[in-house]
Design a protein around this nucleic acid. Sequence first.
DNA 1: TCTGGGGTCCTAGGACCC
DNA 2: TCTGGGGTCCTAGGACCC
Length: 427
Amino acid sequence: MGSAASSKRIALVDVNNFYASCETVFDPTLRGRSVVVLSNNDGCVVARSAEAKSAGIKMAQPWHQVAPSIQRRTQVFSSNYALYADMSNRVMTILGDLAPSQEVYSIDESFLDLTGIPNLARHATGIGQRVGQWTGLSVCVGIGSTKTRAKLANYVAKKAPEYDGIFNLEDWTDHDQTAVLTRIPVGEVWGIGFRTQRRLTAMGIRTVADLQSADPKHLRQLFGVVIERVVAELNGDACMDLEQAPPPKKQIRSSRSFGKPVTDLSSLKEAMLAFVSIAAEKLRRQGSLASTMQVFICTNVFKAEAPQYSTGYTLKLPYAMDDTVMLARFAIRTLEHLYKPGFEYKKAGVNLMNLTPRENTQFGLFTNDDAVQRADKLSGTMDAINQRFGREALCLGRLAGKRRWSMNQSRLSRSYTTNSKELILAR
DNA sequence: TCTGGGGTCCTAGGACCC
DNA sequence: TCTGGGGTCCTAGGACCC
């Protein structure tokens, strides 16, 4: 087996029930209770405590479909992204200190390269203890010779309580590894989604062990190159490196569903201005310029009886830009063309694409340098103010107190860590 | 008789992830 | 009443060029 030859030891560390655990850390009376966190607009369940899981609440389930008897004994929260981002930073910093190299893979997951570290079991235990002591959150650690194997090991660490949240796939003989992988459905493999699982199962490839021993060339013909790499990684042949510095985004999107249906153009414009402001700020933060913009609006697809209209337009910008005022001008003009009265709009958004680095960009022959510089200065000032007073402090064209399009967030917890007005009270 | 064919760029859409 | 948002990569197919 290839894994035996490979000397790499990659760990995947992730926080258990991350969003739900963040809420519990700051309100210990929630411990041992069913806790869920909802998506934007309080729509779907995106995080569950262990008790919520055993109560039968499913991931991504619309909250209104959860049985009332279960709802009643569940503590429910709107997503408090400021809190989760802050807790994430703390965890990632701790993990970074405990490994020679780290890839922050998502808000609650990190790959660590632990190759060559003696007594891996003790090191992994130490990781869990330090995160627990310093943040109050608990983690699982999966170790394997490739990222895909580390992910699988993490799955075992989560599912099998006898391992205490730590599982090193490479500690086991080939025979015992196969025994483990035979018990895991193929859909649990990183990169095998719902559709691919269905097709594989129909071919008789039901478990991870089945996929590991399948013919990669044949699968490539049927499914494409991605699955060929998955099979290689399962066999210990690394196809994916640790990415220590996140590559710049290739597109930046900002969109939201509205709390209530929106019918009038002026509310849509107001929402679009907010989306452009958010996207442009992200664009500037990563030091990029956008040369293509996509604007889209749509009605509620779940409301089958209502008239449906879903449309978007992708336009080439006259030059690569990062300035909110100019981007907003194009977005609003596009929106005016797309808008048709008589529909109940549910969602809108903007997507900045074709991003290029800002440095050494030659501005177009026909751009007015003075105008570009003034716009730069304005955007920079806006970023500074919003940095200091919160993202909503300064926006374009906001009609104070009349946000008919804003999200439902009726169950937001306090911003314990990021807002000095909401500091936790000591008792 | 036989009516090109290979390369490149772009876009839309599928599939996946958290 | 109430159904998330923000990303990535790959592929197929059309347009275009010589």
